[in-house]
Design a protein around this nucleic acid. Structure first.
Length: 139
DNA sequence: GCCAACGTTGGC
DNA sequence: GCCAACGTTGGC
């Protein structure tokens, strides 16, 4: 199973918005970046991801699960763009801030640090476990 | 709200 | 196929 990280501006669509969708989850639509799209195409049912609040908040706040594999983005007819569905499965006991991540030597290679503009990113097994322990959340 | 960094577009 | 111009993202 692979791990990922999804970014969203809380003012637009935040963790509370996703948890409100329950088990059905929500289409991760609107992505118009090839790298981010390719990451979503690589996702499998049951893959897990972090939910990160960008621009304001700047912290990882929860864990999501991929509940539908890549399909056409319903917000466009352009066939280049597709996306997965995700649902919230648990909140972090302690959100893990970008500052904490930057301060942790073991996380210095995270895409979040290295390429802050990529909105859907891969996360390694090690990074996953470290961030979960920082957030006092089970992996 | 600013602006650096990055990705995309389009003229040549 | 190069690269300048432009638009967007996201940390500050």
């Amino acid at each position: 199973m692979a791990y990922w990280l999804f970014k969203s501006e809380p003012d637009v669509f935040g963790w509370d918005d996703l948890t409100a969708k329950g088990d059905v989850g929500e289409e991760w639509d609107g992505v118009r970046n090839y790298q981010a799209r390719n990451n979503m195409r690589a996702m499998k049912m049951g893959d897990l991801g972090f939910f990160y609040h960008s621009r304001s908040g700047l912290e990882i706040v929860g864990v999501v699960e991929v509940c539908a594999e890549s399909h056409q983005d319903s917000t466009t007819d352009d066939e280049r763009w597709d996306c997965v569905d995700v649902r919230a499965i648990r909140s972090f006991v302690k959100p893990v801030s970008l500052d904490m991540i930057k301060a942790d030597q073991r996380l210095s290679e995270m895409v979040l640090v290295k390429n802050s503009r990529l909105s859907v990113q891969p996360v390694t097994d090690d990074e996953w476990n470290i961030v979960c322990s920082l957030g006092e959340t089970k992996p």
